[in-house]
Nucleic acid binder design. Structure first.
Lengths: 143, 143
DNA sequence: TATTGTTATACTCTATAACTATA
DNA sequence: TATAGTTATAGAGTATAACAATA
């Protein structure tokens, strides 16, 4: 067996944990032909209908320039609607078919999050969110 | 202030934490014109001289096809040497200049890991590694 | 002047397929 | 047959720059 000498580095293990978890999530989301990024936008609009495209980008850490093709793709698929609310801003909302998908995505995510938490020994679970939020910090403005 | 409704999802916060931490690391590594992936390979060879290219890939979760350009680039920069040890395997080692860089990279990583840990409240630090290792799991064979 | 949205573009990392050569 | 290395290629995701239009 090949042991990994980098395994004592928290940043490295954090990255490996994130990659492995994302891989599992994307596998699950494949059933809806969705990527994790797309699902996160659908979840966001689902609980914050009427926000602006750039607001959504700021919250999710996605730049303006990358939000454009993302929303365009979901709009083409009939999941998302864009409505001009001022000369330069547009409001995002889910279409009826987007709302329908939202129900399934929420169930899938709940399942995935439960599986993720289940990997952690029960006596450590209470510390997962505080630790991850601390590691996140709040200094990553997507500018 | 825009609160993020996805903030209660551990998988989402894990991803954001990893992205933020990697961004900080890559900023630091920029001083050596290195990416995190390249630094991880240098660290690996530094503590496991003489392993094979495909062994390194298996440990770091990088596929054979992606290891080739990675080692080629570091070899071109004079940091890494490849030596044929059998007809089909090649052993990786650091050149003298690679060994020299290793010292700096190790110091930089130590600094970065300390900063990362410092973000976590002191009373939770003991749980960081057990939790991250559990979230990682061991089911991500790079094929 | 600052913000919003868009396009174009480039880079990193990852993924598969196909090929050669070797064990 | 399975493994090692390589090449080509494609797809995400992210980054900057530049532009038009608007607040």
């Amino acid at each position: 067996m090949m042991t990994d000498p980098l395994i004592h580095l928290p940043g490295y293990v954090l990255r490996r944990a994130s990659i492995a978890t994302m891989k599992r999530l994307n596998d699950h989301l494949g059933a809806f032909d969705l990527r994790a990024t797309e699902a996160s936008l659908i979840l966001l609009i689902g609980s914050r209908g009427g926000l602006t495209q750039s607001e959504a980008g700021r919250i999710l850490g996605i730049k303006r320039a990358n939000m454009a093709p993302l929303t365009a793709k979901l709009e083409t698929r009939g999941l998302l609607a864009r409505r001009q609310i001022s000369g330069r801003s547009q409001e995002l909302s889910l279409t009826p078919s987007g709302e329908q998908l939202l129900v399934d995505v929420r169930a899938l995510i709940a399942q995935h999050e439960a599986e993720t938490m289940a990997r952690v020994p029960q006596e450590l679970r209470a510390f997962v969110m505080p630790i991850l939020l601390a590691l996140w910090g709040q200094d990553d403005s997507p500018a």
